[in-house]
C-alpha cells in the first residue's frame, strides 16, 4: 500500500501575491493586498468579484479549488463579505474581502464557480439581508423567512417583551 506523505510547506505569502497579480493585472482588476498575522487578505471591488474568483479557481497555477467559508461582517457604515479559499495543490490560502453598501447591500453569486457557496450565500442573505444576485434558489436556510429582521446586523435588538415568538403562520 502506498503511504502518502504529507510535507508541510512553508508558505511564502509574497509568492501568492506575485502569481495572483500576474493574472489580475492584465485584466485590469484592482486588488489591494495586505497581510495580517501571516494571512493574506485581498480587498476587491464588488463588481470584480466574479471575475476575480474565476481567476482563482480556473488558472492551473493558482487552483484555489476549495471554498472554506463565506461570512459577512457588519461595520455599521458598510457591510463586508469575506470569502476564504484554499488551494490543496500549493497549500495556499487567500481571504477575499468585498465592501458592500450598508443601505443596499448586494453582491454577485459565486454559485456557478463554487457549488459550496449555495448554503453560505443563503445564510448570509437571511442573516444580513444581503441581496445575492444570480443565486438560483435564495430561500431561507435556518430561519422561517417571515421575521422581518436580520439577526446578525448590529442594529438588531432583542426585544423579547414586544416580539411574539410564535410559530410562523404559513403551514397552518
Amino acid at each position: 500500500m502506498e503511504i502518502l506523505e504529507f510535507k508541510y510547506k512553508k508558505v511564502d505569502v509574497q509568492e501568492i501575491i506575485e502569481v495572483v497579480e500576474k493574472y489580475t493585472k492584465p485584466s485590469g482588476l484592482l486588488c489591494n493586498f495586505f497581510i495580517f498575522k501571516d494571512q493574506l487578505f485581498c480587498e476587491i471591488k464588488r463588481e470584480d468579484l466574479k471575475k476575480f474568483v474565476e481567476i482563482l479557481n480556473k488558472k492551473p497555477e493558482l487552483s484555489f479549488e476549495y471554498l472554506k467559508c463565506i461570512t459577512a461582517v457588519d461595520y455599521i457604515d458598510y457591510l463586508e463579505m469575506v470569502y476564504l479559499f484554499y488551494s490543496f495543490k500549493n497549500q495556499w490560502s487567500i481571504n477575499v474581502k468585498v465592501k458592500l453598501d450598508a443601505l443596499n447591500p448586494q453582491v454577485d453569486s459565486i454559485y456557478e464557480i463554487y457549488r459550496a457557496a449555495d448554503w453560505y450565500e443563503r445564510e448570509m442573505a437571511e442573516m444580513f439581508g444581503i441581496n445575492i444576485i444570480g443565486h438560483p434558489n435564495l430561500k431561507p436556510l435556518l430561519l422561517s423567512g417571515d421575521e422581518g429582521f436580520y439577526p446578525l446586523r448590529k442594529s438588531f435588538e432583542i426585544k423579547w417583551e414586544e416580539r411574539e415568538y410564535l410559530p410562523p403562520k404559513k403551514f397552518e
Binding site: 431561507p140 435556518l142 430561519l143 421575521e147 410559530p167 403551514f171
Partner: peptide, 10 residues
C-alpha cells in the same frame, strides 16, 4: 425553533 414548530404541530 420557529422553523420547526409547524412540523411539531403536524
Amino acid at each position: 425553533t420557529r422553523k420547526y414548530a409547524p412540523v411539531v404541530k403536524r
